[in-house]
Design a protein around this nucleic acid. Sequence first.
DNA 1: CAACGCATCTTGACAGCGTCAACATTGAGT
DNA 2: ACTCAATGTTGACGCTGTCAAGATGCGTTG
Lengths: 204, 204
Amino acid sequence: MTQDKKTYHHGDLRQSLLQAATDIIREGGVDSLSMRKLADNVGVSRTAPYHHFKDKNELLCAIAEMGFSDHIHAVSELPQQHADLDKRELFELYVLSYIRFADNNPETYDLMFGKEIWKLGKPTESLKTISKRCFQHWLEWIETLQAQKILTDQHPTLRVAQASWATLHGLCRLLNDGIYVNKNDLEEMGRTAAAMLLAQNRVD
Amino acid sequence: MTQDKKTYHHGDLRQSLLQAATDIIREGGVDSLSMRKLADNVGVSRTAPYHHFKDKNELLCAIAEMGFSDHIHAVSELPQQHADLDKRELFELYVLSYIRFADNNPETYDLMFGKEIWKLGKPTESLKTISKRCFQHWLEWIETLQAQKILTDQHPTLRVAQASWATLHGLCRLLNDGIYVNKNDLEEMGRTAAAMLLAQNRVD
DNA sequence: CAACGCATCTTGACAGCGTCAACATTGAGT
DNA sequence: ACTCAATGTTGACGCTGTCAAGATGCGTTG
C-alpha cells in the first residue's frame, strides 16, 4: 500500500499524518497524541509535520473538520432514508443518531465540540465555516419543527435550537467524559430527552 | 497574614496549596496549573506538594470536591430563600442558578464534570461520594416535580433526571468551552431550556 | 541540460512538564 | 535525650511542543 523505500520526500505526508493521527486518537484518546509520536509512527522526523501543519492546534482542527463533514454527511441522509417516519419519530431518530455518532467517535466528538480547540486553541477559519454550516442545518430544521407545532414556537428559533442542541450535547458529554452514565441506558436516555423536548406530548 | 520567616516546615502547606491552586486556575485555566509552578507560588520546592497529594490528579480531585460542596450549599438554600415562588418558577430559578455557577466558576465546573478527572484520571473516593450526593439531591427533586405533574411522569425518574441534567450540563459546556454562544443570551437560553423541559406548558 | 529556488525533511537545542529516588531537617512521642 | 515519622529539598529521567539552522531533492526557468 504505502511505499517501502525511504525517499527523502515522503510524497503524501499530510494525508498520512491525518490518517495516523486519527488512528492514534481513536486508540488512546486525544491526549495520547503527541506530535513526536505521530511523526515517529509515520516514519518521519519530529519536526516534519510542521511543514504541513503550523501547529498541533491546526492538526487537531483538520481532524475536527473531517469529523464535521462525516457528521453532516450522515445526518443529511436521515430524512431520505426514513421517509416513512413521522416528524416526531424522525426527531427521535436524529437524537439517537447524534448520540451514536458521539459514542462511536468519542475522541473526534471531543475535538469538534471541546475546549481544546475552541477555548484553549484557535479554530481554523475553515473549521469555523463548516461548524457554522452544521449548526445552520440544525437551525433550519428546528424552524420547520416549530412551524409544525412539534417544538414550541413560544420562544425564538435560535433559543429553541440552542436549548435542544444543548440537551444532545450534554448527554454526549456525560457519556464521553465518563461521568457516571451507563452506556447501555444510552438509547433510553436519548428517547426520554427527545420526548421531553417535544411539545405537548399528551396522549390527546 | 502568612508567615514571613522561612521555617523549614511550612506548617499549613496542604491548605496553602489548595488556595494557590484555585487562584492559578481561576486566573489562567486548569491547563495553566502545573505542580512546579504551584509549588513555586507557595514558595516551596517542586516535590513538596507530593507529600500532601499523591498525584496532580488528587490535587484536582480535592479542588473539584470543594466545588461540589460550594454548589450543594448554594443550591440547598434556594427553596427556603424563595418560598414565594411556585414550583415552575423555582425550577427555572434552579436552572439559572446552575448556569450562573458554571459561568462564575468555569474552571471549577470543568474539574467537577470534566473528563480530566472522570475519564483520564481517577476520581477520589471522597469525590465520588460527594458527587453522588449531589446527583441524589437532583434525583429526589425531580421525583417531587414528577409527582406534581410538572415534569413528565411517563418516563422513569432516573431517565428524566439524566435528561434534564444533561440539558443544564450541555448549556454550561457550550458556554464554558467557548463554542459560540453569546454570554449575554445566557439567561434567555436557560429560560427557554427550562420551559421546554417542563411538561405541557400550555396556557390551560 | 544546467542552475537556481523553494518545498520538504533532518538534527540540535531549549524550556517546560510530572514524578521517582535519595537525602536533609524537624517536631512529636518514648 | 533519642528515635521515628512527617515533611521539605535537590537531582535525575523521559516526555512534551516548537524554533533555528542545515541537508536534500523536485520543478521551473534560462
